[in-house]
Amino acid sequence: MADEALVAAEEAAGAAGMPQLEFSTFPNQIFWLVVTLIVIYLILSRIALPRIGAVLAERQGTITNDIAAAEDLKRQASDAEEAYNKALADARAEAQEIIAETRAEIQAELAEATAHADAEIAAKVAESEARIGEIRAGAMQSVEEVARDTATALVAALSEGKADAAAVKDAVAERMQGGSQ
């Protein structure tokens, strides 16, 4: 049987040489090729292509939705960040304000206290000065009296007469003035 096939094959090969040019097989090949192509076409166009097209469209839709959702979330996040930043800035401004207020208050209190103390000090200084002036005037008067008494005594002792009280007083006053100058 194998020999028979071999002989048949050799005869076929001898007849045409190239199996591609064995025209007796052409109707067979063409018939089965057409059947094959029609079957593939039906499988593709009825089942495979609509399915793949639908899957691709669905995926495209999913991707678009996801991108939109991501965009939305991103926007929300940036909104939240903005609000946070705003709140932070507000708080900071408020704190600044409070600090400034407090500082001004303290400054005012301090200034008042300083002024009060200054005034007290000034009053005390004035009082002290007045007292010092009084003391000084008192002292000067005492010095003049002592000088006059001494001068009168000296004049009386030297001239053995009664000293002219008025003249002595003038002279002493004149000297005192000159001395003080």
């Binding site: 040489g17 064995e22 067979n28 090949q29």
Partner: peptide, 28 residues
């Protein structure tokens, strides 16, 4: 060129237009 020879897939015999050949099987 022998590898391109078309033979009936089941048994021997002439190749009619409807015969299932090795070419047909590989198309299938």
């Amino acid at each position: 060129m022998d590898q391109f020879i078309i033979e009936p897939f089941f048994g021997d015999g002439p190749i009619h237009w409807y015969t299932v050949t090795n070419s047909t099987v590989w198309m299938g």
